[in-house]
Design a protein around this nucleic acid. Structure first.
Ligand SMILES: NC(=O)c1ccc[n+]([C@@H]2O[C@H](COP(=O)([O-])OP(=O)(O)OC[C@H]3O[C@@H](n4cnc5c(N)ncnc54)[C@H](O)[C@@H]3O)[C@@H](O)[C@H]2O)c1
Ligand SMILES: NC(=O)c1ccc[n+]([C@@H]2O[C@H](COP(=O)([O-])OP(=O)(O)OC[C@H]3O[C@@H](n4cnc5c(N)ncnc54)[C@H](O)[C@@H]3O)[C@@H](O)[C@H]2O)c1
Lengths: 256, 256
DNA sequence: AGGCGCTTGTGAAGGGGTGCACAAATCGCG
DNA sequence: CGCGATTTGTGCACCCCTTCACAAGCGCCT
């Protein structure tokens, strides 16, 4: 309302950046808002209503307002949110005002795709180094970066200030790689290997497991199929689908 | 939870599967349990306690027991769970007793990695077809599959019974591809493009956005840094770091 | 056979997230 | 200058999920 705290001057003057530890669910949605906001900015929008932004981000508008209110947001009643200001706010809260350096370990099948992904740079990150353990891969150049041996990680980590480590090695090597990353001071890890990593407290790990996503979809697919197959027996609580309108879509019958 | 269904193996004809609609959080963890169980089975374990399995899956043991109880699980008090039986149960609930056919649309940078990923096959899926819109890509052979033009989707979908569609195209094309998938009867979509998809009710969409994961990590990184920077005592619990390199993060001071 | 230790399954309490509904605030306009 | 239209920010009720704690059940050992 009255006190405008600009992201450009987070540091000084007694006033703490006031990082209120946001609800985790909110944090997970902020990047989505940010992406939608960038789209809006590119298409010339100066302000946006919570309804409009919520729509663009695929969420409920009340949820969006509550999320933004958590970070002491600055909307104008009767008008909406200033797109540019909101972008700055969210980028500041997410710690994106500095371009974070990412180290990618494991330049195989998936690692190659990641290394060449331009979505990194455009969303606030910079791939600072590529590592692999396979000597035949060391020295290869990908998107202007040279693959180094993983043993060089300590030295490189000292040069570049690695903020986040990405693991794209086989699961059998993931824990060892995570240990190495932690050893050089990395406190945030994104893990693509399908395994559980054990890390000391203070280190954040997020996991991306493609097969898990597919299996979750498989469950719903299975459930949908069994619903259409059921002749409305017992009538327990399974008919709890929204609206009661029973899926006007085409359903593939799964052979049984 | 008085209705004890028979451990009736998935294959059993007759008994109606009567899928209990599990809590969504439980569904999301079942694949993790399944992976851990497969690991245990491979290492010769016949039974496992909730504590052991929870440990292997990286969750709380009470949570795991409640999850398993939801699917009318069959453990033996004083002993634990039969690994093989539990695998069958979970695979059945997840709808993995049939190998689901996956269609991958967009065989670019990321699509190539996905097409060559053997984690699909080993976790219950089969890539049935690859599609792209780029004529120069059509015809290319990847891992034994030939890339077809996306216009052939209807025909191929009729032949193979596509269960899940994976979108790995640029964001600008994702909505159109989703529409095409829905049009041919696909009701489950995994989307790698950074955008919100709009689909009719009854269609499930899951999204994997790498940048979002990194930005969430960035937030926590930012928060950790601001905590260590604060003179307010409190004694941070971050001292678990080995290298003593206590996140000497440069405080950003970038003006817009 | 009986007791004992171990493990499951679950009731209950507590916390967090979601969405509704509305008061407060702001702008444009007559 | 005030009024109505519009939109934000939030109190509140509800629901889901997590976690603790413990009784019930099971096998083994004596
Ligand atoms: N390819 C995909 O589409 C995909 C999708 C989801 C998950 N994954 C997972 O991502 C990981 C990588 O998959 P991939 O297909 O790229 O496998 P890959 O075998 O092609 O690549 C793995 C790379 O890691 C390197 N490596 C092995 N041990 C290492 C170590 N100790 N230190 C550094 N590098 C090491 C190997 O030399 C290799 O280059 C796997 O865990 C896989 O399950 C892959
Ligand atoms: N490369 C990565 O590591 C990575 C990581 C995360 C997310 N993503 C996202 O995944 C998507 C693909 O990334 P990429 O790096 O593979 O891009 P890419 O440009 O290399 O590949 C995109 C492919 O999609 C094809 N395509 C375009 N329009 C199509 C249409 N209408 N129908 C069918 N095919 C079409 C193109 O011909 C191309 O082959 C992008 O949305 C990207 O943001 C990529």
């Amino acid at each position: 309302m009255s006190q405008h705290r600009h992201p450009g001057a987070p540091g000084r003057a007694g006033a703490v950046p006031a990082l209120p530890d946001l609800p985790e669910a909110t944090v997970a949605r902020l990047p989505e808002y940010l992406r939608a906001l960038h789209n809006l900015a590119e298409t010339g929008h100066e302000t946006v209503s919570s309804e409009g932004l919520a729509n663009a981000a695929g969420v409920n508008s009340a949820k969006l307002r509550k999320d933004l209110s958590h970070l002491g947001s600055y909307g104008t009643r009767g008008v909406g949110y200033d797109v540019g200001l909101l972008i700055d706010q969210i980028e500041f809260v997410l710690g994106l005002t500095q371009r974070r350096a990412v180290a990618l370990v494991g330049v195989g099948n998936l690692g190659h795709a990641l290394a060449g992904y331009d979505g990194f740079a455009s969303r606030g990150f910079r791939i600072a180094a590529l590592f692999d353990a396979d000597p035949s891969r060391v020295g290869e150049e990908i998107s202007g970066l040279t693959v180094r041996h993983v043993d060089e990680l300590p030295r490189v980590a000292a040069e570049e200030s690695i903020s986040i480590g990405v693991i794209a090695t086989p699961a059998s090597a993931a824990q060892a790689v995570a240990d190495q990353l932690v050893a050089v001071g990395v406190t945030s890890i994104l893990n693509f290997a399908p395994c559980v990593l054990s890390v000391p407290e203070g280190v954040d790990v997020r996991k991306v497991d493609l097969a898990i996503e597919l299996q979750i979809l498989s469950f719903h697919e299975h459930r949908k199929a069994s619903l259409t197959a059921l002749p409305a027996s017992g009538g327990s609580a399974l008919t709890a689908l929204p609206g009661g309108l029973a899926a006007t879509d085409t359903q593939e019958a799964i052979g049984t």
